[in-house]
């Protein structure tokens, strides 16, 4: 399928991510290290999945492979029916821009831009790559409206003109999430999004993501090594040594923003696995 014209949205409950037989070996280390060993997984549209594992288990590599940033040595990744690694680099970039949002542990906001400008970046990239008179361009007013709406949704009202160095870590990460969501991606990928945040801010952030899934059916995959964070997800994939060694379905996804899920069942399962 071509990525030039976005496919029709995947129906809620249908598979959004189809990954099969993913293999990845880092050969720059000696001896070469197998970080993904034949991983296959499915993530449904509107699902909230967490990937857990110890450091070096391959969870971040899996996330970046699902997002099209890290090509696997073998295997395929289909997002919304598009085989990511059978497309060119520029087509993959375009797909990421339009269909995938990334959130990183270190926020990665551009210091020379204000919060609003950081949020608007994916839309600017889309406009910059369109022909001057092309139909895909988004009018400036529409960009501003969309940025304002997303920032309001993430409680960032009033911070539009602030630079990254003028706001707190939690606010910076919310700006990063706003940036990931502004283009209405089909898939939100977050790599240790609470890694640099305190406990309170971490749970506020996870509540926010949880709400997005609950209210907007935003498909979300989060990588974390903390059970209390993974407990917000509906399903937790546990990785060890480049493989998914277990899968835990959690039925108690919080119904409100204030509710904090109990990580005890997940912790018990991890203990049972010896992790």
């Amino acid at each position: 399928m071509s990525v030039a014209t976005p496919p029709p949205p995947t129906a809620v409950g249908a598979d959004l991510i189809e990954a099969d037989g993913l293999v990845k070996t880092y050969r720059i280390s000696r001896p070469p290290r197998d970080v993904l060993r034949g991983i296959s997984l499915r993530v449904k549209n509107g699902e909230f999945v967490a990937i857990m594992g110890a450091s070096g288990s391959g969870k971040s590599t899996l996330l970046y492979t699902l997002g099209g940033l890290e090509p696997p040595d073998a295997g395929t990744v289909r997002i919304d029916g598009v085989d990511l690694f059978s497309t060119s680099d520029s087509q993959r970039s375009q797909f990421r821009r339009d269909r995938i949002g990334f959130v990183f542990q270190t926020y990665n906001l551009i210091p020379s831009m204000t919060a609003a400008e950081n949020v608007a970046l994916p839309l600017r990239l889309r406009n910059e790559s369109s022909l001057p008179l092309g139909g895909n361009r988004i009018r400036r007013r529409d960009v501003d409206d969309r940025v304002r709406a997303v920032m309001n949704q993430l409680n960032l009202h009033g911070l539009q003109g602030h630079g990254p160095d003028q706001i707190s870590g939690g606010e910076q990460q919310r700006v990063a999430i706003a940036r990931a969501l502004v283009a209405a991606p089909a898939l939100l990928l977050a790599d240790e999004p609470t890694g640099n945040l305190d406990w309170t801010t971490s749970h506020e952030l996870m509540s926010l993501l949880s709400r997005l899934v609950r209210t907007d059916r935003q498909t979300t995959v989060v990588v974390t090594h903390e059970a209390s964070i993974a407990a917000y997800a509906e399903r937790v994939l546990i990785m060890s040594d480049g493989q998914i060694v277990d899968e835990v379905r959690l039925s108690h996804m919080p119904a409100t923003d204030e509710a904090i899920p109990d990580p005890a069942p997940l912790v018990a399962r991890l203990r049972a696995l010896g992790l």
């Binding site: 997002g67 940033l69 680099d89 520029s90 970039s93 375009q94 797909f95 990421r96 821009r97 339009d98 995938i100 990334f102 990183f104 990665n108 551009i110 970046l121 994916p122 990239l125 889309r126 910059e128 790559s129 940036r179 283009a183």
Partner: peptide, 14 residues
């Protein structure tokens, strides 16, 4: 910044 732009969908050409 380059990594972020690329992750956010900027092409090599951009």
């Amino acid at each position: 910044e380059i990594g972020l732009l690329r992750a956010a969908g900027a092409s090599s050409a951009q």
